[in-house]
Amino acid sequence: MSSAPRAHELGVIGCHGCGLVCEHPPDDLTHRHCPRCQAPLHRRRPDSITRTWALLVAALILYIPANLLPVMYTSMFGKVSESTIMVGVIEFWKAGSYGIALVIFIASVAVPCTKFLILGLLLVTAQRRSNWAVRERARLYRLVELVGYWSMLDVLVVAVVAALVKFQKLSDVEPRIGILFFGVVVILTMLSAMSFDPRLTWDTEKE
């Protein structure tokens, strides 16, 4: 595609931390540190694919209990209910609050699922050194990073509601174990996205 030389071809290495370009012979396998910020220097994030895979798999596993276990306990006028994410979405939808139902659905189902899919796609293509739709993959990665901040929406909603709605017997909202799993899932996906090295996408370019 482009004929610009790669860093390892020029015998230099860029620091992840501060961006300082250091000299680094291609066959030197010793660990170096950035002379400026002391960050360890490496051409690609070490074990990027493995780490991403591991974190992604962990997030996937935890996503099951996060959806099966109740995330919120509500007691309103003595009527007690514990709702899981999907039950809540369905209830809101049935009650006519389509907006809220949609927001919750997007934040807690659509976004994590797309993240899993995108990361999985990126990982598989990077592992296979696939040349397919490289630019789009790069764009997808940026999307994942962008969306990552907003994945905690559900957790925040439960935390805020649980703190606000405390009217003794009248109504009470308490978080349940499911929301913890959900929070862990979000963190794991973010970590997974972080440990993925987007430059792996471009490593296939020349071949």
């Binding site: 997030a59 596993i61 209990p65």
Partner: peptide, 19 residues
């Protein structure tokens, strides 16, 4: 085996224990 794989292992353990 990268140590990172401990994370999904722990997650699986937790999930299984819950089940």
């Amino acid at each position: 085996v990268s140590l990172v794989w401990l994370v999904p292992a722990v997650a699986a353990l937790i999930g299984i224990s819950m089940m």
